[in-house]
Write a protein that binds this DNA or RNA. Structure first.
Ligand SMILES: [Mn+2]
Ligand SMILES: [Mn+2]
Ligand SMILES: [Mn+2]
Ligand SMILES: [Mn+2]
Lengths: 219, 219
DNA sequence: AAATATAATTAGATTAGTCTAATTATTGTA
DNA sequence: TACAATAATTAGACTAATCTAATTATATTT
């Protein structure tokens, strides 16, 4: 079908479009793909030929509907495999991303769907990211950054925006896990440090940087 | 580490060495890899440079110890994934080979070992082929071809030498599954057709070709 | 608007893995 | 042993994905 490389470009474009708007620049893509700009220009021209992206010289590019379908399919694979690794094989949430980067490229819709069923049709991966369904529909999340909450507001910890093992490990050590209820007890004026209540009698202090990497659903 | 292509060459050489003796010919390998002879010469020269095989111009090649280790590792992956697909995802034994051809190339010893544990350290894959342990040790099987049994001899069906879906499906239809006890009731002089007793009161007739593709452990 | 800085593309090369056509080596037979 | 058949290698070319260096296009300042 498509090469791993093409699939990785599609995924990267998809994610850039999600966060940075419709049109993606050569340089951004080069950066996230870890290649130099001319490689991107070349690759994208080839992919435009396959109708996976639209491309106008020096104007950037965006995914076609077809390209988007493929991208979402890979993301579905990635997140389902992450659930498998954590729920079934006992991996920790900070260990699974690189393996899922490999497993996401196994080409079989049937396998993906059987895996989905085996896992009990999970709605989110171990990091709280939503899993597209078999039709490529991605549930729209209404989670917001913890850093947008005001004092006394409450929410449920549903995801992270930083997926690095370093950050995930920090959360483990701090005792914050997906599903926890958090209530903002105080926000330090000077440096935006947050004091949170998690569990009835546990209070913790986190930096703004941390609060800005945590997603919550407001209660 | 190694490319998928290299891994597939190693696996193919390993299997050729198992069945056709130590030294492998360019043409045999070209045939099983589905490429033309010059591609093999090229590839094998590169692989000799990496000390995966030894190569003497026009004299054929064989795996080094290092090459053998890699090959056995891939085979371990392949067979464990086949067990996963059948035992956990509900695939049938004739459907899993091509998926395992993809999954076997996931690079992670740790994943392989966790999968092994999750599956309960199986000794054999769904086709009865032995699974190498974490040290690459492959249990030596003493299974023989059903076609070597004499009248009134009994055995346990433990594997197949033909892995095609067509043959596996035939066995399903004939009602022969791994683990079944078989007893040779008659062998037709004219065409070597076998009459077998499987289960207390069930007798079936199979061709020589079939008897020659079934492995049994003599009781 | 012109000058400068930044971003993107083109040109030309490289590597892995493959091909076809031509050549050389090995093997089997007369 | 010499001749023919078969097997293997070399030569030269192609594609996907990458690179560096040079060039062109766009954006930002003065
Ligand atoms: Mn991930
Ligand atoms: Mn994830
Ligand atoms: Mn198989
Ligand atoms: Mn098998």
């Amino acid at each position: 079908m498509h090469s791993f490389t093409e699939e990785n470009y599609l995924k990267a474009i998809y994610k850039l479009q999600e966060t940075n708007g419709e049109v993606v620049a050569t340089s951004s893509l080069a950066q996230v793909m870890g290649v130099h700009a001319p490689s991107v220009t070349d690759m994208l021209k080839r992919m435009a030929g396959k109708k996976l992206v639209t491309y106008q010289k020096s104007k950037g590019f965006k995914l076609t509907e077809k390209g988007k379908q493929v991208a979402v399919g890979i993301i579905r694979n990635h997140r389902l495999w992450e659930v498998f690794l954590v729920d079934k094989l006992g991996y920790k949430w900070d260990e699974v991303h690189d393996l899922a980067e490999q497993l996401e490229h196994i080409h079989s819709e049937d396998l993906t769907n059987k895996l989905d069923k085996f896992l009990g049709f999970p709605k989110a991966d171990p990091h709280g990211d939503p899993i597209p369904d078999a039709n490529g529909v991605l549930p729209k999340s209404k989670a917001v950054l913890l850093s947008t909450l005001k004092i006394e507001e409450k929410g449920t910890f549903t995801g992270v925006t930083d997926h690095t093992p370093a950050f995930l490990n920090y959360l483990d050590k701090a005792g914050i896990s997906l599903g926890n209820t958090v209530k903002v007890k105080a926000i330090e004026e000077f440096d935006q440090t947050y004091t949170l209540q998690i569990k009835p009698e546990k209070e913790i202090v986190i930096s703004y940087k941390v609060a800005n990497s945590i997603l919550v659903n407001i209660a």
